[in-house]
Amino acid sequence: MAKAKGAIVVDKARCKGCGVCTTACPTKVIELAAEVNGKGYHYAYMANPDACIGCSNCGIICPDTCITVYRAKAGATA
């Protein structure tokens, strides 16, 4: 199993479930949740966290800026 190099934190309450991040993710980490947030949106979440490479594509494309991205330093062990 691949070791995750990155991780994201989605501000669930702020997310509008537009899904733009799901198409921007090169490793198909993100999907929209079956549940909805307080606004009634299917918020984004890490469906496949092990695949995250911490590239930040999702964060920078998110129109509502509700994704924070972390990336493990090269050589660091998780």
Partner: peptide, 27 residues
């Protein structure tokens, strides 16, 4: 173990206010 301050690579700038945008999803 990855979500740690030293690994932070992208975060919301503080020049943005805390208000939710009035725009439609994906705008």
């Amino acid at each position: 173990t990855i979500i740690k301050p030293e690994n932070l690579t992208y975060k919301r700038t503080e020049v943005l206010s805390d208000n939710d945008l009035s725009y439609c999803p994906g705008c």
